[in-house]
Design a protein around this nucleic acid. Structure first.
Length: 725
DNA sequence: GAGTTTGAAACT
DNA sequence: CAGTTTCAAACTC
């Protein structure tokens, strides 16, 4: 850190030093601690994200801001310009492309970030995944340096789209940076992977930063932002804006979250790398801007730990995510997925494996275990593009902090994401304790979340490891063949919820619901035995539970959604047993606030939150009628069990039905005529009938409706649901 | 930490 | 598709 850069920084602004400190921490944390698989996968823990956290935070913030300030990109850019941090990322870029221009400032500003970026780039390049990503992307297959180059290109693109410095140049710049940041490197040396993750982010930041050459920077950013999907732009902006602050926060977060070991750096790295590879690389290289979106997605992906096998899919997922996430439709992204062969990505199992676990997402994770990720991957691989996309998007949603923000997107997309945030909530990093399932069945939380088992797991005869990638994939496929949604997020949040949640990521939207619903008989849905409760969502029509007292919302429609629900939840969490009485109390507690959301959340809650998001993305929201109903209605009514007679898929009535509907993005639902059919069809014929109204009613937040609309609009991209089934 | 409870997943 | 078994998490002590 003592490098001349630090000196510059110091001279420039008092703030910088602090940044540098943070940075150092982050690096250290990164290098030393490997966050657990953060991503969507349940395993993923917030902590895991250390590195990710930054980005995520930033991204999340950015997302939020974006959502809020969609129109204010310019302002953001301005902020970026104001904030010196952004420049940090730029420095690398500047050095590369600008030649003389921005170099000075960027360097200065970059002291922290810049150093990181170059490093990241370097490392990234080194990571096998990067190479893979590059390859997969179809861009030039490049050695490690190539990857860095690619990153650089990204950066440059924003600034200088047409003019890319030669890769060699980029490399040179990188080297320069590296040299300068030797300290960093030394610190980081061990955690190349981590950097890789960062790299995507970095690239983003760098993009934003690149243009920075002071005055130009703002303009450039604005243009860039405009180009980029709001989210991405946001991320960039946020990164820039947040600048030191973000860095600090991120660092802090990391520190807090940093789990020393869980997610090995490899894992984290892999995921991010995957994301990067799939999204960033492909898009960036191939296209240009799409890349940015990918980044956002990437961030999400990063969080999640994706199984390596999923890698290819992850790309898709990412793409899908991008779609979902990016308000603007990204035809490119869509195409890429198709073009990109999810499978190909796997190309180097060794790489994936080696670096760590592949991510498929979270995202995550997520999903958690994002959940989703694996699902996404699987799905994607399987073929059902639309579904997979949705799923992937869902997974992406999973991202922890992002979850909330993303919720809307996710829900809209019905795809994946969010959850995984949950995964984060999972933050605890899921760990399984499987003894007989070999971690190849859904019994295994890790497997179900699409995450590889890690050290913390105390499983026996575990096959859910990169080493057994093939087995894992094959098993997944089998399971998916049975139930395409098997790996999809279980909890779905509707767009409404997402919007509702809006800024408060922590809140569990009333609209969020468990896809399948629970079947609790003895726990009264007041314990984690209940998947709904565990997911932090209320029971819905889909639930067949008996004596439901779910603090998050009862199946019968007694909506506790608001404060009451929170109260109950809290009480329940405190002491599940006393729940009955507590429930009543909870109801009484009607404070407008939903403490739940506000509440820091127990891990479970966090997890839930994140999860719901992810899930939300996947499916429920989509169900036009059903989804709506379920989400919203869940609360209100209906009788139970949502077993619908749903026509379609339901061999097993509800599940398939639900899953399908859930999976279907809200957009699709809306768009698709079938929705109407679905509504009528709802598995629980009972429930369905009133879909629309019920839904609306049920939705705690009316605003949510508007939000949905928005989401829907944004979502356009989702593939048709039909394909799968 | 061991044992029990619970409900999802898997199987028939 | 319903019923049963298997399984592992959640919970209790």
């Amino acid at each position: 850190m003592e490098s001349p850069f630090s000196n510059f920084i110091n001279s420039l602004s008092p703030i910088n030093p602090t940044k540098t400190i943070h940075v150092s921490q982050t690096f250290g944390s990164l290098s030393f601690t490997s966050p657990p698989s953060v991503f969507t996968s349940p395993h993923v823990s917030f902590q895991k994200d250390n590195k990710f956290l930054r980005r995520h935070l930033v991204s999340d913030l950015a997302r939020h801001q974006l959502s809020i300030d969609e129109g204010n990109k310019d302002s953001i850019t301005e902020e970026d310009g104001s904030t010196e941090h952004h420049p940090e990322s730029l420095p690398n870029v500047q050095i590369r492309g600008d030649g003389g221009e921005g170099s000075a400032k960027p360097l200065e500003d970059a002291s922290d970030c810049a150093a990181e970026l170059p490093r990241e780039l370097k490392y990234d390049s080194g990571s096998p995944r990067h190479c893979e990503a590059v390859n997969s992307s179809g861009n030039e297959t490049r050695s490690e340096p190539d990857t860095s180059v690619a990153l650089i290109q990204f950066i440059q693109e924003p600034s200088d789209r047409g003019s890319f410095e030669t890769e060699s140049n980029a490399k040179e710049t990188n080297h320069d940076n590296e040299e300068e940041g030797c300290d960093w490197q030394s610190l980081i040396s061990g955690s190349s992977d981590l950097f890789i993750f960062d790299s995507p982010n970095v690239t983003e930041t760098s993009k934003g930063s690149l243009p920075k050459s002071q005055e130009e920077e703002t303009n450039v950013f604005a243009s860039l932002l405009a180009r980029f999907p709001s989210e991405q732009a946001y991320d960039l902006q946020t990164s820039l804006q947040v600048g030191s602050a973000s860095c600090h926060e991120a660092h802090e977060i990391r520190e807090q979250s940093t789990q020393p070991t869980e997610a090995t750096e490899m894992n984290q790295i892999d995921q991010p790398s995957e994301n990067l590879e799939s999204a960033s690389v492909n898009e960036l290289f191939s296209g240009e801007k799409p890349g940015k979106q990918p980044f956002s997605s990437i961030h999400r992906g990063l969080r999640r730990r994706c199984l390596t096998f999923e890698m290819p899919r992850t790309k898709r997922s990412i793409d899908s995510v991008l779609f979902s996430t990016s308000m603007a439709s990204l035809p490119n992204e869509e195409n890429p997925p198709s073009n990109r062969q999810p499978i190909t990505p796997r190309v180097d199992p060794a790489k994936r494996i080696m670096p760590g676990i592949g991510l498929h997402l979270n995202a995550l994770a997520g999903v958690s275990k994002g959940s989703g990720i694996s699902n996404q991957e699987l799905l994607s691989t399987n073929t059902q593009d639309p579904l997979t996309n949705s799923l992937t998007s869902l997974r992406e949603d999973v991202g922890p902090a992002e979850n909330i923000v993303e919720m809307a997107e996710d829900s809209s997309q019905a795809s994946v994401r969010k959850f995984e945030t949950i995964g984060e909530g999972e933050s605890s990093c899921k760990r399984c304790n499987c003894k007989k399932s070999k971690c190849l069945k859904l019994y295994c939380e890790c497997f179900a979340a699409g995450v590889y088992c890690v050290e913390p797991c105390s499983c026996q005869d575990c096959f859910n490891k990169p080493i057994h990638e093939e087995t894992v994939l094959a098993t997944r496929k089998q399971i998916e063949s049975r139930n395409p949604l098997a790996f999809a997020p279980k909890v779905i949040r509707t767009a409404d919820s997402a919007q509702e949640v809006g800024e408060d990521t922590t809140r569990t939207p009333a609209s969020a619901r468990h896809k399948r619903g629970c079947n609790c008989k003895k726990s009264n849905c007041l314990k984690k035995y209940c998947e709904c409760y565990q997911g932090g969502v209320g029971c819905s029509i889909n639930c067949r539970c008996e004596g439901c007292k779910n603090a998050f919302g009862r199946k019968d429609g007694s909506n506790l959604i608001g404060t009451e629900a929170e109260m109950e939840k809290i009480q329940a969490s405190e002491k599940s047993v006393q729940d009955k009485t507590s429930d009543i109390h909870a109801f009484h507690n009607d404070e407008g606030q939903h403490s739940e959301f506000a509440i820091p959340m127990t891990p479970s809650r966090l997890f839930r939150q994140s999860i719901p998001v992810a899930t939300s993305s996947k499916g429920k929201p989509p169900r036009s009628s059903l989804g709506m109903i379920t989400s919203s209605s869940g609360l209100h009514q209906v009788d139970g069990p949502g077993r619908s007679t749903f026509l379609r898929t339901l061999s097993r009535p509800e599940k398939h039905f639900k899953s399908v509907a859930d999976e279907i993005p809200t957009v699709l639902q809306n768009c698709s005529p079938p929705s109407s059919g679905l509504k009528t069809l709802s598995p629980n014929s009972k429930r369905i009938s009133p879909p629309h109204h019920a839904n609306r009613q049920t939705f705690g937040h009316r605003s949510s409706q508007s939000s949905r609309k928005l989401i829907l609009q944004s979502i356009p991209a989702f593939p048709s649901l039909s394909p799968r089934r």
